[in-house]
Design a protein around this nucleic acid. Structure first.
Lengths: 154, 154
DNA sequence: ATGAGTGCAAACCGTTTGCAATCGG
DNA sequence: CCGATTGCAAACGGTTTGCACTCAT
């Protein structure tokens, strides 16, 4: 995991960006997260690593990291825009509706389907975005809709 | 298409909502749209049908219509939250990157894939959201990025 | 040393809420 | 007629921008 972090840091530098304290903090925060984090959450958690991490910096840094492919934006149903560390290659996510835990699906088995779509519609397919929602194993075994309650409306 | 509209209107009434001028305008606007519309766009276009259609009303109406299942929110990669008329049943979209034209994919062929995901992850899959981006036939044949220009920002 | 990167405060949206006037059934 | 619905103006929260200071290289 330390090796992991170095790789991420190098990736930033390779693209001509400096490796600063705030950026380190954001990377560490994302690396430690098990669910998509909003900018505000990233700031809050990141302050453990960099006490005066500013929200503005989080925004600017996320933009850079997304450009460089270090970070991937995911759509969470309530407030859009969560961010997760991007794993190399193409992946999809399964997000738990209750606790927001995320599992990545590594293999993308949509190839055939997309080809058919292309034929049927005449579109040249350039990309796709699949997000699956469900209930994770843990939450299935808890009965009461506990953490879910606050997000029922919408 | 007139019949279509009536069905939509009835659907609203069945759920105990009044059918007002603004709501009529919003329904017509969405019915005429070929791509997901943001609230602001809906207001602008809807004013053709209801001159003083307010943005606030658009928001409130969209919420109602989404509750009732008349309208479906879709995630467009730039500013979240576009809305399209919900077609009965489960569909996916292919959105043109240049002109934002939308084609609906009627058959959902993800069943097998989702089952495998469920087994692999232990999640109980409750839903999924697939959005495919590409270039529509028309835009493939035009070289210069023309109609795309006005909507490049935002 | 020097430009990239930062934090702060203020501007800037898009969205929501309070309220009196209006419209539909 | 009466309550649901509307539009306006104001509040609100998240995101972006301007600017002087700081830090990594």
């Amino acid at each position: 995991m330390a090796a992991d972090f170095d790789a991420l840091a190098d990736h930033l530098r390779e693209h001509g960006h400096k490796l600063t304290q705030p950026r380190r903090a954001i990377l560490k925060t994302l690396a430690a997260a098990s669910k998509p984090l909003s900018p505000a959450e990233i700031q809050a958690r990141g302050q453990v690593f960099c006490a005066d991490l500013g929200l503005v910096t989080v925004y600017r840094t996320l933009e850079i990291m997304a450009d460089v492919g270090l970070v991937r934006p995911v759509h969470v149903m309530d407030g859009c825009h969560g961010y997760v560390l991007a794993t190399p290659g193409h992946t999809h996510h399964v997000v738990c509706e209750r606790c927001n835990a995320v599992v990545e699906i590594v293999g993308c088995e949509l190839g055939g389907f997309l080809e058919r779509v292309a034929q049927r519609t005449g579109y040249a397919i350039t990309g796709h975005w699949l997000e699956i929602s469900g209930i994770c194993a843990d939450c299935q075994h808890e009965d009461g809709p506990r953490s879910a309650s606050e997000r029922t409306r919408q």
